[in-house]
Design a protein around this nucleic acid. Structure first.
Lengths: 150, 150
DNA sequence: ACTTTACCTCAATATAACTTGAGGTTCTAT
DNA sequence: ATAGAACCTCAAGTTATATTGAGGTAAAGT
């Protein structure tokens, strides 16, 4: 296989995703490909990295929409440099820290509060949760909705 | 309103959820109610706590299915005691710690790896992610699938 | 050359966790 | 007594993130 023209099957295997997922990402504008004579997708080697970054970001809980926004900030005309990627990474790192802090906070109230036996509803932090994150959105964690991605 | 017979509207307001959400939780077996003469739902005061706990657990990323399993372990015949709730809390606390550890781990590799400029695909922890959590399931974070709830 | 594997498109299905809407009933306040 | 708020059921819709399947084409192996 040409070193610079990766097939979707190869991409999928290397990235640990299904072929259909790559199709899906392409449809969503997260990755790009060109076609060979027979209309089959071909990927640039850089796309491996892109997909890995998508997966890493998802683990942080960032939605595909937001990942797309971040990736859109990468240069189109050249292979992204180390600095380009580092900018992304540092943004997500902030997110990640915020999420960790949030979970730590939650943990601290969880044991002390769920198990506390208190029924003073006006005081209990779990009953009286002002946290927007708690009431917004649809999915399991959904910290994402409220966090700006710049 | 009778102190022991809460209406869905009141429940919804107190818990910060929609009425439809309470219907939904009931349908899923997460909460219970009885009906008054006119077929309207009435809730026991304990249900406030139940719903709060459901929401707290969701913030940790636990799915409704797993929350249900945990709640099912509470006694039906009596109001759950402090100890009953504490047992739940400590299980979820473990989950939470695991998730925090996971995110910390991810954070540590994120900056060093996404931004590192390395293209040694055999070594980069983001390219070569053996973590089951990363490749399973469908949602944003989905740490849940793999974690047993006992 | 022929077979098998990989690829293509497009539409439908899956899952979690809800929300919305239509059409109708019951409560509550004046 | 009556208006308006709150409630009821049941079906369909929503969002994110894919997966699955049908029907057909291209490429690769022998």
């Amino acid at each position: 296989m040409n070193k610079e023209e990766l097939t979707v099957g190869y991409m999928a295997k290397r990235c640990g995703v299904n072929v259909s997922t790559l199709h899906f990402y392409e449809e969503k504008g997260l990755i790009k490909s060109w076609r060979n004579q027979g209309n089959q997708r071909r990927y640039h080697r850089d796309t491996l990295r892109r997909v890995s970054v998508i997966k890493a970001a998802q683990k942080v809980g960032i939605t595909l929409d937001n990942i797309k926004k971040a990736l859109d900030s990468l240069p189109e005309n050249r292979t992204p440099t180390k600095e380009d990627w580092q900018l992304l990474a540092s943004n997500w790192n902030e997110e990640l820290n915020a999420r960790i802090a949030y979970l730590e906070n939650l943990r601290d109230s969880l044991t002390s509060c769920i198990g506390c036996g208190c029924l003073s509803l006006t005081q209990c932090p779990i009953y009286n949760d002002q946290d927007k994150l708690a009431t917004e959105g649809t999915g399991p964690i959904l910290l994402d909705r409220k966090v700006s991605m710049k």
